[in-house]
């Protein structure tokens, strides 16, 4: 049985000790739907550059290069997806090589980013895109 006590100055604090059984009965309270937490890709299909999952990628010294490459890839209609973005990825890599302390460790550790990229593109439902996404991921890792 759950029970309750009043504590504190002027008994202002109510303390309920609830049993597990008691709490297994579904709550009568329903809360409003939580606000959607936008991921890397916004509901309208755009890239969310504010996504915390990007870490310093989009804001660092190669941020512009990264954005160009990733945008190209995301909106690519080429077959396979992203095959028309080679030059942009190359530019990004060249930039990243100038900052080994920034882009080496960070990315290999950052499974979040790779996951996010992967997830974002697998939601397109294209088989190829998954492969390329992981290729992108490797690319960024190498650099």
């Amino acid at each position: 049985m759950s029970h309750c006590r009043k504590l504190g100055p002027n008994n202002k604090d109510i303390v309920i000790f609830a049993t597990k059984e008691d709490h297994q009965v579904p709550s009568k309270v329903t809360l409003p739907e939580p606000d959607p937490q936008p991921g890397l890709i916004l509901p309208n299909g755009d890239i969310n550059w504010n996504c915390p999952c990007l870490g310093g990628m989009a804001t660092g010294p190669c941020g512009v290069e990264f954005r160009n490459a990733f945008s190209c890839f995301h909106y690519s209609d080429a077959e396979p997806k992203g095959s028309d973005c080679y030059d942009l990825f190359k530019t990004m890599q060249v930039c990243m090589q100038k900052y080994p302390t920034l882009y080496n460790k960070d990315l290999s550790d950052d499974d979040d980013l790779s996951n996010a990229i992967q997830q974002a593109d697998s939601s397109d439902g294209k088989e190829d895109s998954v492969k390329i996404a992981s290729a992108t991921e490797k690319d960024t890792k190498k650099s």
Binding site: M1, S2, D13, V15, I16, F17, A18, K20, E21
Partner: peptide
Amino acid sequence: LPTVAVFAKATD
């Protein structure tokens, strides 16, 4: 402020 707390009871 007045508070209401719900704690998990250890055993029943």
